[in-house]
Design a protein around this nucleic acid. Structure first.
Lengths: 149, 149
DNA sequence: TTTGATGCAAAGACTTTGCATGCTT
DNA sequence: AAGCATGCAAAGTCTTTGCATCAAA
């Protein structure tokens, strides 16, 4: 079983288990930044021996290893959402449902490239704050539910 | 007691109580987007007859009325943070502590004005998403604790 | 074989709710 | 006087933890 995923885990100091594979696959396939429970529901269908605690533990391990990120859950209910932390830094957040969806890649890039790096640098110097990631959120409302979810 | 705050509440259909005054004042004075519990701690010092449930209820009422906003609590612990929803749309989020601080007003404006409205419009048309608020978060780390908190 | 991961259930943290009482309007 | 807001405690979510068992390395 020395596939790509195994190697990814290994490079990040994580053991490669059946559960972690399933969770990682579900997370990276999803376009909608699922919550821990949503992931659990997806994964349980494919693999019945799976507990919600493991999903939480695994996500925490992924986050520590840099394989995933928590993104805020400020919408409807207060649950944390996760993503695999690609370069999708433009989110559409629905005020009502709490859903978070990536903006189309091309538009995201075109919008983000307008943010001037020299101002970010100035800010870092002035405040004593190190910026790791620039995250632009457009808060609003979907006219209809995205992703069919 | 027909001061400014009373009028603000009244315009938003809210009764003006001692507790709501205290909570609103504490929230608008704070530069650091407190959690419900942090607000409770601040306010309890000044007004002993104050319950945490009231803080939550009041914040919920403020949010419904548009007097405050929830902002995500994706940092350390998972508690929601609040602000009075001025035009401070550039936040510095500390990965480690979960603290959220406004960027200095001038810098925030200078950075945000670079985001081209026509691209936002294009996105709204393409996705069927109505943007109410543009929120830019710089995620990273403070070299030392901000706000003395 | 060693060591970390899993699953279960219990505990913990954060938030909401029901209801009697009090206060604003 | 009427009706919303408060306070308390209990209930509800979401998340973490302890511990025995299991599996990856």
């Amino acid at each position: 079983m020395s596939d790509e995923l195994q190697q990814t885990f290994c490079e990040h100091g994580l053991r490669c288990t059946r559960q972690r594979r399933a969770i990682y696959n579900a997370l990276s396939k999803s376009c909608c930044h699922p919550t821990a429970d949503e992931l659990f529901q997806m994964v349980k269908k494919l693999d019945d021996g799976m507990s919600l605690a493991t999903v939480y533990n695994t996500l925490e391990a992924f986050c520590c290893a840099g394989l995933a990120y928590k993104i805020a859950g400020c919408g409807g209910n207060g649950s944390t959402r996760y993503d695999t932390g690609g370069d999708d830094h433009l989110h559409l957040r629905c005020r009502k449902t709490g859903h978070i969806v990536d903006a189309p890649h091309d538009l995201g890039e075109r919008i983000l490239e307008h943010i001037p790096q020299e101002l970010i640098n100035e800010l870092q110097d002035r405040i004593g704050f190190t910026v790791n990631k620039v995250q632009l959120d457009l808060v609003g409302e979907f006219k209809k539910s995205p992703c069919g979810s």
